[in-house]
Protein backbone atom coordinates (compact mmCIF):
# COMPACT_ATOMS: atom_id res chain seq x y z
CA UNK A 1 0.00 0.00 0.00
CA UNK A 2 1.12 3.54 -0.68
CA UNK A 3 2.47 5.00 2.51
CA UNK A 4 1.19 8.42 1.53
CA UNK A 5 4.19 10.45 2.52
CA UNK A 6 7.43 11.74 1.09
CA UNK A 7 10.49 12.63 3.12
CA UNK A 8 13.30 14.94 2.09
CA UNK A 9 16.30 16.24 4.04
CA UNK A 10 17.57 19.64 3.01
CA UNK A 11 20.45 20.78 5.19
CA UNK A 12 19.17 20.50 8.75
CA UNK A 13 15.52 20.71 7.73
CA UNK A 14 13.56 17.52 7.27
CA UNK A 15 10.43 17.97 5.17
CA UNK A 16 7.66 15.39 5.18
CA UNK A 17 4.81 15.75 2.74
CA UNK A 18 1.83 13.91 4.19
CA UNK A 19 -0.99 12.30 2.24
CA UNK A 20 -4.68 12.40 3.05
CA UNK A 21 -4.39 10.27 6.16
CA UNK A 22 -1.86 9.49 8.83
CA UNK A 23 -3.17 6.41 10.59
CA UNK A 24 -2.09 2.98 11.72
CA UNK A 25 -1.77 1.96 8.08
CA UNK A 26 1.08 4.34 7.30
CA UNK A 27 2.27 5.89 10.58
CA UNK A 28 4.54 2.94 11.47
CA UNK A 29 6.29 3.28 8.13
CA UNK A 30 6.76 6.99 8.72
CA UNK A 31 8.12 6.21 12.16
CA UNK A 32 10.62 3.82 10.58
CA UNK A 33 11.59 6.47 8.08
CA UNK A 34 12.07 9.07 10.79
CA UNK A 35 14.24 6.62 12.67
CA UNK A 36 16.76 6.94 9.85
CA UNK A 37 17.28 10.58 10.77
CA UNK A 38 17.78 10.01 14.47
CA UNK A 39 20.79 11.94 15.80
CA UNK A 40 21.54 13.31 12.33
CA UNK A 41 21.43 16.94 13.41
CA UNK A 42 17.91 17.69 12.25
CA UNK A 43 17.03 21.15 13.57
CA UNK A 44 13.62 21.53 12.02
CA UNK A 45 10.92 19.12 10.85
CA UNK A 46 8.34 20.48 8.45
CA UNK A 47 5.16 18.47 7.99
CA UNK A 48 3.33 19.59 4.89
CA UNK A 49 -0.27 18.81 5.85
CA UNK A 50 -1.93 20.45 2.86
CA UNK A 51 -3.59 17.20 1.85
CA UNK A 52 -4.07 15.76 5.35
CA UNK A 53 -7.71 15.34 6.35
CA UNK A 54 -7.44 12.75 9.12
CA UNK A 55 -4.88 11.93 11.78
CA UNK A 56 -5.21 9.05 14.24
CA UNK A 57 -3.42 8.50 17.50
CA UNK A 58 -0.62 6.62 15.79
CA UNK A 59 -0.08 9.61 13.53
CA UNK A 60 0.13 11.94 16.47
CA UNK A 61 2.62 9.65 18.12
CA UNK A 62 4.77 10.06 15.05
CA UNK A 63 4.83 13.81 15.56
CA UNK A 64 5.76 13.34 19.19
CA UNK A 65 8.47 10.93 18.13
CA UNK A 66 9.88 13.55 15.79
CA UNK A 67 9.99 16.07 18.60
CA UNK A 68 11.28 13.86 21.37
CA UNK A 69 13.36 11.16 19.79
CA UNK A 70 15.10 12.60 16.73
CA UNK A 71 17.58 14.34 18.98
CA UNK A 72 18.35 18.01 19.37
CA UNK A 73 14.76 18.98 20.19
CA UNK A 74 13.95 20.07 16.64
CA UNK A 75 11.36 22.70 15.82
CA UNK A 76 8.16 21.23 14.36
CA UNK A 77 6.21 23.10 11.71
CA UNK A 78 2.82 21.98 10.48
CA UNK A 79 2.04 23.64 7.19
CA UNK A 80 -1.51 24.22 5.99
CA UNK A 81 -3.10 22.14 8.72
CA UNK A 82 -6.89 21.72 8.43
CA UNK A 83 -9.11 22.86 11.25
CA UNK A 84 -10.11 19.29 12.10
CA UNK A 85 -6.59 18.05 12.43
CA UNK A 86 -5.57 21.10 14.39
CA UNK A 87 -8.49 20.52 16.73
CA UNK A 88 -7.15 17.07 17.63
CA UNK A 89 -3.82 18.61 18.54
CA UNK A 90 -5.49 21.24 20.65
CA UNK A 91 -7.80 18.89 22.51
CA UNK A 92 -4.89 16.71 23.52
CA UNK A 93 -2.62 19.60 24.40
CA UNK A 94 -0.04 18.73 21.79
CA UNK A 95 -0.30 22.06 20.01
CA UNK A 96 2.52 23.29 22.23
CA UNK A 97 4.91 21.11 20.26
CA UNK A 98 3.91 22.56 16.96
CA UNK A 99 4.11 25.75 14.99
CA UNK A 100 1.08 25.97 12.71
CA UNK A 101 2.10 27.66 9.50
CA UNK A 102 -0.10 28.74 6.60
CA UNK A 103 1.41 29.04 3.17
Amino acid sequence: MDNQFQVKLDGDTLTIVLGEQLTTTNAPALMDELNNYKDKGVAKVVFDASQLTYIASSGIRTIIFAKQKLGGNPEIDFVNCSADVRSVFEMTGLQNYINFVSK
Partner: peptide, 15 residues
Protein backbone atom coordinates in the same frame (compact mmCIF):
# COMPACT_ATOMS: atom_id res chain seq x y z
CA UNK B 1 -12.91 12.45 25.27
CA UNK B 2 -13.55 14.06 21.92
CA UNK B 3 -10.49 12.17 20.84
CA UNK B 4 -11.65 8.87 22.34
CA UNK B 5 -12.33 7.52 18.88
CA UNK B 6 -8.62 7.97 18.18
CA UNK B 7 -7.60 6.36 21.47
CA UNK B 8 -6.36 9.73 22.70
CA UNK B 9 -8.44 9.99 25.87
CA UNK B 10 -5.37 9.85 28.08
CA UNK B 11 -3.86 12.87 26.39
CA UNK B 12 -7.12 14.81 26.37
CA UNK B 13 -7.69 14.28 30.08
CA UNK B 14 -4.08 15.12 30.92
CA UNK B 15 -4.38 18.26 28.85
Amino acid sequence: ASTGRFGMQVDELKN
